[in-house]
């Protein structure tokens, strides 16, 4: 009996803690919005963070996109060839990338590359009292540290996802057209006939913006909320990856279910 009670109590307290964290995260988001004016007035702070979150993620994004595109081309070709419609390979690669893999894989890589860097950096700043020092200097850490990183993430993520999709399609093109020898004309024309700009490409872009928001705010919150110790920061970094990945996949399902009816 006692065990059952303890179990229920455990569920309750865990739920309460999660809710409290969600609330604190939302609070941070509104603080970011309030202090965003500051980070736009001094745009170089945001540009600097775009360099760290966006430009430095470029290599991993481009390389993985090319490989993902090549794999899609290869796998798609094997399957489509059985039905004698290997020209549709372009459509398959493009739709898969633009609608799903572009935004989702980019977001997962972004969480691993940029998200962890953000959490670790902010956590470390907290552990070494840099954030407190800023507070005492009457400078809001949200305005100076959090808001520029937030906007940098929001800007970088859609750009990275777009680059991912385009490079992935080039990877598919490389395999399908240059290596296997699918007709180049039908590769592109089938693609153009079936990929719709406002439905597929714009919806993919919307996805990437939503994922960018989720990954960035989670990374920022985990860093900001991390216990100021070495252990706390390392746990927070792990949590960033886990929570971001789950959030991205969950959000992807929700968005997909009412985007591509």
């Amino acid at each position: 009996m006692n065990k059952i009670l303890n179990f229920i109590e455990g569920i309750g307290s865990t739920f309460r803690k999660k809710m409290a964290r969600l609330g604190a995260g939302t609070r941070l988001f509104f603080l970011v919005l309030i202090y965003s004016g500051d980070s736009f007035k001094r745009i170089h702070l945001t540009i600097r963070e775009i360099y760290f979150t966006g430009v430095l993620s470029l290599i991993i994004i481009v390389v993985s996109a090319f490989f993902v595109g090549m794999v899609l081309g290869l796998q798609g070709y094997y399957t489509l060839e059985k039905y004698g419609s290997s020209e549709a390979i372009g459509v398959l690669v493009a739709l898969a990338l633009v609608r799903e893999l572009g935004p989702v894989v980019t977001a997962l890589l972004f969480a691993g590359r940029a998200g962890t860097a953000i959490t670790a950096e902010i956590g470390l700043m907290k552990a070494t009292e840099q954030l407190s020092a800023m507070e005492v200097m009457a400078v809001s850490p949200v305005a100076r540290i959090i808001a520029p990183r937030f906007w940098a993430g929001m800007i970088s993520m859609p750009i990275l996802a777009t680059i991912f999709s385009m490079v992935g399609i080039l990877g598919g093109y490389f395999i399908a057209v240059l290596v296997i020898g699918v007709d180049e004309g039908s590769f592109w024309s089938q693609m153009q006939a079936n990929v719709d700009f406002s439905n597929d490409i714009v919806d993919g872009a919307i996805k990437s913006i939503v994922f960018g928001f989720a990954c960035t705010i989670i990374a920022l919150f985990e860093g900001f909320d991390a216990p100021p110790t070495a252990e706390g920061v390392s746990r927070a970094t792990t949590r960033t990856v886990v929570i971001s990945s789950l959030a991205v996949l969950g959000l992807d399902f929700i968005l997909t279910s009412f985007m591509f009816v």
Binding site: V98, S165, M166, Q192, A193, V195, F197, D200
Partner: peptide, 11 residues
């Protein structure tokens, strides 16, 4: 990349 997607890939 967006331009490429819009013109080369999309319609």
């Amino acid at each position: 990349a967006m331009f490429g997607l819009a013109t080369k890939v999309g319609n």
